[in-house]
Amino acid sequence: MGFEDIIPLLNSSIRFAVPLLLACLAGLYSERSGIVDIGLEGKMLGAAFAAAAVAALTGDVWLGMLAAIGVSISMSMIHAVASINLRGNQVISGVALNFLALGGTVFIGHSIFKRGGTTPNLAKDERIGAIELPLAQEIGQVPVIGPIYEQLISGHSIIVYFAFLAVPITAWVLMKTRFGLRLRAVGENPKALDTAGISVFLLRYQALVITGILCGIAGAYLSTAQGANFSENMTAGRGFIALAALIFAKWKPWNALWTCLLFGVLSAAQIRLQGVEFPIIGEVPVQVIQAAPYVLTVILLAGFIGRAVPPKAVGQPYVKER
């Protein structure tokens, strides 16, 4: 594999990594506030459908994006009511939302478009297009740096740049702002926060709204930037890989970036390594690479490489004493 092969590989790695990264950061806000979110997958799926359907109906992809965020926030609010107000089981609520998205998208999609759950293909100008960074063509002539700038850094949709920007923003919010401090505290020791007169409920609601927004963007990316329509179960487990990435990243934003890029490379490699013979080990079955993110996460969770310690109060409903 030469240099000219590596750039396309990294390029597709980025495309695989972006929805993971957005969903992973979404999960980070939720879990840091103490709410387990198994429903990242469902929110992404619902958002992907809303984006593609509204873009197809109105011809305006940004309305689609708004709809995606709206749907994702609504689902996140169902999760909030179930897990914050009703103190229900957060894992079950997530499972239910995943099913709701799986059935609901096809039910509505089939009723509107009569195409068995898929939405019509979007034209090029109805999708979120690629952005060419300034001087891409000119710098592209420079050896080594040129192709990296022209092909790898330039030419992605705005969501890709947003996703990468969301990492330092999240790190800053979490570590340098009052909201971030409280968010981390509410996931570790909600009672301390309550004693200090800060509303645990409100903070958790705020966190889940952010989770909804980020999952919404991730879903819109899948159906209107990376793809050109919605198809049944198009997230195909990405929400769960994002969840694995979140644990692998030990609930930290910068780690989330590296983990999602690693998982992105694994996804890209999976397609490229099909049928490739390696020295000594021979051909690696694609399923081995498919399973790699999950296996790595299990190994990490078991404490064989480092230790992943979740926020202390995660998954426990907060009961305010009267």
């Binding site: 089981n89 799986l102 059935g103 609901g104 096809v106």
Partner: peptide, 17 residues
């Protein structure tokens, strides 16, 4: 898929809500 929706709602109402 109506059935999947109903199943999801049963899970939501009886398990989480």
């Amino acid at each position: 898929e109506l059935v999947v929706v109903i199943q999801a709602l049963v899970i939501l109402f009886s398990g989480a809500m």
